[in-house]
């Protein structure tokens, strides 16, 4: 299978008082052209860190230590010089973020921000860029697109801002769109609309999507394959149908049970406790303190990734091939 993006042994650490704290450890995955890969996991499991390290967007002030390999169409993106990387951001990899209220520059008009990638990457002049910006706003179903160009982010609702962010990310028709919890900060009613917009555009434009979310309902509706992350590591990966019907990892199971329970407190009853922060991770399986099936051997070593079904892998010593945990 040809791969658009291949991530191998990706490790990301942030220097802290106690040395470099690992936020992402030994992560492997790939995305095929046109495919939707979802990454799920509780907050703090390293999803955003993994996503941001692909186009080299990790916060510079936190001086991240990155190793491994991120190849886009065979080209290594880690340690690529800034200028070269900047040319890939937009036309190759587009990105949308969790909070549309902070992702738009408050002092620039919407028009200026949509036109920016059109002018930098596609060499359009002001007038052509503006015409294209209006088309893009229509594409993401923003009402009265001509008037929006002169407006500022604070004039728009949260849902509208996220649509604008999507328009900006799509401006140069990227082959991969990274969406980091694109609906988490939105009203429930708007969430579904924005998700439908993203998957609709994905199909019509044929781009691949890396969708980060903690909502399994979203995964079910939009993704082809899914990666479950816990405490900086991949704990399970496989086709969506398979993962959601026959999970092999106790953590995935817990996530599923929690999702089936209505309301917010599902999590507390199904998986008590929280994701341990990087400096408090136990040796061996990081999920051990919260795992109902844990045995002494779980503390001995980090469980290796192994096959548990067709296209399915998991990192749990008690998960057997073809047999749900």
């Amino acid at each position: 299978m040809t791969s658009l993006l291949t991530v191998k042994s990706l490790c990301v650490g942030f220097p802290g008082k106690r040395g470099v704290l690992p936020a992402v450890e030994d992560l492997d995955f790939h995305i095929a052209p046109g495919e939707t890969l979802a990454i799920v996991g509780e907050s703090g499991s390293g999803k955003s860190t993994a996503a941001l390290s692909i186009p080299g967007l990790l916060s510079r002030s936190s001086r991240p230590v990155v190793s491994g390999s991120v190849r886009f169409e065979g080209q290594e993106m880690l340690n690529m010089p800034d200028r070269k990387l900047a040319r890939m951001r937009g036309p190759d990899v587009g990105m949308i973020f969790q909070d549309p209220s902070t992702s738009l520059n408050p002092v620039f008009t919407i028009g200026r921000q949509i036109c920016e990638p059109l002018r930098t990457h596609m060499g359009l002049d002001a007038r052509a860029a503006e015409a294209r910006a209006i088309e893009l706003l229509e594409l993401v179903k923003v009402s009265a697109p001509e008037q929006r160009l002169a407006q500022y982010p604070h004039n728009l609702s949260g849902g509208m801002r996220q649509r604008v962010m999507i328009a900006i990310a799509l401006a140069c028709s990227p082959r991969l769109l990274i969406a980091d919890e694109p609906t988490t900060a939105l009203d429930v009613t708007v969430q579904a609309q924005v998700l439908r917009l993203i998957s609709g555009l994905q199909k019509s434009l044929g781009m691949a999507v890396l969708l980060i979310t903690h909502d399994l309902g979203v995964v079910w509706e939009t993704a082809d394959r899914v990666i479950v992350m816990y405490a900086g590591r991949k704990v399970e990966e496989g086709p969506v149908r398979r993962i959601l019907s026959q999970p092999s990892h106790p953590y995935t199971e817990g996530l599923l049970r929690a999702a089936r329970k209505e309301g917010r407190d599902g999590f507390l009853t199904e998986i008590p406790g929280v994701v341990p922060p990087p400096h408090q991770r136990p040796p061996g399986c990081a999920f051990e303190p919260r795992c109902a099936r844990a045995i002494a051997a779980c503390r001995a070593a980090v469980p290796a990734i192994r096959s548990t079904g067709p296209g399915q892998v998991a990192a749990c010593i008690r998960a057997e091939e073809g047999q749900p945990a």
């Binding site: 800034d82 200028r83 900047a86 990310a169």
Partner: peptide, 26 residues
Amino acid sequence: DLDYITAARARGASEKKIAYSHAARN
């Protein structure tokens, strides 16, 4: 360090433009 600077980088703005236009204005 704010989100909209990361977002500007994500759409391929050059470091010069980020510093002197996006960030400086704010």
